[in-house]
Design a protein around this nucleic acid. Structure first.
Lengths: 234, 234
DNA sequence: ACGCCAAAATCCGTATACCGTTTATGCAGG
DNA sequence: CCTGCATAAACGGTATACGGATTTTGGCGT
């Protein structure tokens, strides 16, 4: 009865969004409907509609040459974090209030994997576990409108998060914050959750601003020549 | 090149959303792509994409027989107002802080028209002026992500607002709340704005819940066309 | 060598056509 | 009259095709 694969647009959209969440798409990549359509063995229409939806949601921008990751300006980052500060502490507090044992187990599992990945220095695993952690507590939020909106604002940053993790100190600080939040979730303490989350938001904003600023100054020099992507037919 | 009307999808989308904002679409209406395409003299594709975007944003739902207004459940209303309480007081406070003379003039003009319409009992004019008032202060919000998100949550209710206005007492109360908010905008008082807006949100939630509940009980009886399974009382 | 311009390629936007599913309609049997 | 069933209509989903704008490519003139 569970039919997420009912229509092609939904399938492709979900797949693409997952790729964005996992930073599988780099800022220099161009997503072209024909290429995606070919990869799924369908026509342009479903691929295009999925892309347009991602554009409407603000994840992508349409260019004259394919769709690309939206590049956040410093102002965007500040504005988006103003929203996150407004929403996430409240959402997390609600989640703590409505937490169930299964979700707590998911959270703990994800947290364990995050710390293991930190020890191993495996960024890819760390990011996946991080997404799991995030999705787990969002699932405890009863208010779906709230959970979806929060998820959307988080996703804007998911696609660049790897970069901010290149700084080891920042990464350590990030995991510490997460660990504290996890403990408060386990303790079912909505007030402290809201508090920790608020502090976490400010730290995260600084981290992303720093990362983005570095990217911007670096890209002053790099004027990319055209790169050929290998073609694959089917 | 200030032409957002470059492509057809954008044009049709904007037009349809305006119609939704102005309650030009009733819950029993069915929006069909071919019909819309015909009205604009274009093919199905742009009409369909505009409709799908409205579905993705939650304004419409796709049925097997055309697209229809999304019907908010009582839980939806409660959840959406939880979001509005979280966002609108802050957004309005920001607007008060960043208010410019032109926007204040727009606000005052809209407020004047609202009160005139109230005196005339002209609901249509009142609703239009109400949308203008709302858009005016949203334009003062520098954080576009915030303004857009707030607008989206407001729009869910714009399409049913006329109903809540059938109760004269509620209407009067509504305008009083708006008038107080307008005064605080003119006074550039972010703190009071946030306060008034919060109170206003609670009142509005009660009003919409009451309206929706009445709608739901009323629709128990309305059953057109011939049925097969379910028998009507003799 | 260098730039300028035209031809080619790429890719978005839009149009048209087909198909499958769901709903309505009409007809025959009780 | 009601019920069941077959047939038609409506509509969403998808495929394919065309056009136009923009970028790339390649060669020609200076």
């Amino acid at each position: 009865m569970q039919k997420p694969s009912d229509n092609l647009v939904e399938t492709i959209y979900a797949e693409l969004r997952l790729r964005l969440q996992r930073s599988d798409v780099s800022p220099s990549d161009r997503l072209v409907d024909t290429e995606i359509a070919g990869r799924y063995g369908v026509s342009r229409v479903p691929a295009r509609e999925a892309l347009l939806r991602l554009v409407a949601e603000g994840y992508l921008v349409g260019t004259t040459r394919g769709f690309a990751l939206r590049q956040l300006s410093l102002e965007d980052i500040a504005d988006l974090f103003e929203m996150r500060r407004q929403l996430e502490p409240r959402a997390a507090a609600n989640a703590a209030r409505d937490m169930t044992p299964d979700i707590e187990a998911e959270l703990t599992d994800a947290m364990t994997r995050i710390e293991a990945a930190l020890a191993d220095g495996d960024l890819r695993v760390l990011m996946d576990a991080n997404v799991d952690f995030r999705n787990a507590w969002l699932n405890a939020v009863r208010n779906r409108h709230m959970a979806d909106t929060v998820a959307r604002f988080m996703n804007y940053f998911q696609s660049v998060r790897l970069d901010s993790f290149t700084d080891k100190d920042m990464l350590k600080q990030y995991i510490d914050g997460l660990s504290r939040i996890h403990a408060a979730f386990v303790a079912r303490d909505p007030v402290r959750i809201a508090e920790y989350m608020t502090l976490y938001m400010f730290a995260a904003e600084q981290a992303f601003l720093a990362v983005r600023q570095r990217q911007l100054t670096e890209s002053e020099t790099a004027r990319p020549s055209r790169r050929k992507k290998d073609k694959q037919g089917r």
